[in-house]
Design a protein around this nucleic acid. Sequence first.
DNA 1: TAATTATGACGAC
DNA 2: TCGTCCTAATTAC
Length: 334
Amino acid sequence: MPEGHSVHRITRQFERNFVGHVVHASSPQGRFAVGAAELDGRRMIDARAVGKQMFLGFEGDVWLRVHLGMYGAWDFAGDILMDATIASANGRMGQTNQRGTFLDAPNPDAVVFDSAGENSLTSIGAPRTTRLRMSESEKEGNGLETFPPEPIGQVRVRLLTDTICADLRGPTACEVLDPAQVEAIVAKLGPDPLLDPGAVAEERFTSVVRKKPTPIGLLLMDQNVVAGIGNVYRAELLFRARLNPHTPGKQVPEELVRELWRDWSKLLRIGVETGQMMTMDDLDPEAYRAAMASREDRHWVYKREGLPCRVCGTHIVLEEMGARKLYWCPSCQA
DNA sequence: TAATTATGACGAC
DNA sequence: TCGTCCTAATTAC
């Protein structure tokens, strides 16, 4: 269940491993057979992430748009070249073998390599415990002996080069577009801090929020206001700003809106580097490491309903907002 | 075996 | 506000 950071990470994988290569496209599941045929045999020339959407550009002005939705995921197999940023982050966080590849698998971006290092496999998207277990058994010599591997589960589209295989499963959107259609979709999306890191985006976000009567807790999830924030980052950003989720956008002090934008930029960068939605970055180094290692201790309020607030001890509240679960501290975020 | 859950988003009322 | 779609793991029965 990826938010913006995962999509940026996946896009980097495509930049590193696919851009410049001729791609064989297919749809093992069959549901994307027509689209795959349009892409098949073309050279990939671009990979872009905007919020939670990814656009892969192919020669001949053909684009593939993918949105993972709640449980979509990409699985990479083969001789994967890790993006420098991702590789170094992994090296920092987990155990590494002699080749420097990553052995431990911190969810939600499960990055798993067999110890031989040859037949690597990585999955970015929804947590896939089965897949992890499989990888562990593969370490002991089963499976992944052939390339490309047998598709696992419902694979909507498979993109293949000589050395890399990428399988897409469970996307909410997977379609072939022309450049004008891509432009139309991107134009509707709100700013993404990694796309335009300058003051223009901050200005755009701030002015939109400051005009709306909509609760800030809904605005942060609105992809047309700001792209890439999902349910986890929403709850955490609001807590970090000590902001009541029900506050109408127009009533949030301007400086606080700007702080929200800058904080989102910061958390997104951390997420892209580490592959985890760490939102308690202000900890001392030791506590930070412990928090990273634990699934439960990584957030201020997300999934902590009924537990004491880490700051004031008040029980964290769970309520529905925008048909999604919203966690917040009624005392800190009064 | 069925219900439940998940870090989305859309369209019909 | 609801139903619907995409998938797979976990939990309940």
